[in-house]
Amino acid sequence: MPGRLITTALVAAVMGLMPAPAAAEQYITLVGTTSTDNSGLYGKILPLFTARTGIHVRVVSVGTGRAINIARNGDADVLLVHHRASEEKFVAEGYGVKRYDVMYNDFIIVGPENDPAGIGGLKSVVDELAKIAKTKNFFVSRGDDSGTHKKELSIWKIAGIDAAKASGGWYREAGAGMGATLNTASAMPAYTLADRGTWLKFENRGGLRLLAENDPLLLNPYGVILINPARHPHIKAKMGQAFIDWITGPEGQAAIKAYRIKGSQAFFPNAKQAVSR
């Protein structure tokens, strides 16, 4: 009978519209970078916070540019990203309450095993990128307005190279997250700038290897910011601040320090010890 069909459809529809059981729990929404998520850090440290406070953390992972956009719209409670200038601007414009240091790691340059551009022996990342450009070897850029992308662009700028002019030639803009960009680099093969955490965890390295690291320019600091409840009254300010206090406090910092990927420390805690209230 058509009646029964319609009833079944209605029941299914209503079931779908009912909130998932998880909605009953206390939670905050954290919007953060793909690099921290792909590295597996959240999976390790967030359960500790939930065990301590009963607050669940829902993580939405996108590039820093989009993360800031989502936060600006008030669609998350806490922002955790890695582009200091954007973070400070975000706070200065009144979208965020205050920026706290959380941790840092670093960027590295990976590339084809045989290093056709010969960047292996060079001392500075500026020279390395300049050499890749000069020899016109493939370089895959994130091209997605993420923190990593912004970092890469800033190095090209110091090197005085207009890489965008070569876009489509030796310079390829993937417009994708860190993992997807590494997949592209591994398949071409090509050079790319990656954050160490994602690289350590990355399974599909193919013919890629780590070619350059340890340049002060490649430092990658992360900041955490509570979205301003004065601008978006629905922000869960108390729980969001509890999260910030925890991750910048002794327990969160120790958890970050203890996190290992295949035996290597991936993030280095650097919060100021005094916990804000």
């Binding site: 993992g179 997949n183 399974e203």
Partner: peptide, 24 residues
């Protein structure tokens, strides 16, 4: 959905996530 673990993660978004981790 935002691909949030235990909340909005479905088959297709998990596939995209595993690709981005390089676990093909």
């Amino acid at each position: 959905g935002g691909n949030i673990d235990h909340v909005t993660r479905v088959m297709t978004t998990s596939i995209a996530l595993e690709v981005s981790k390089g676990d093909l």
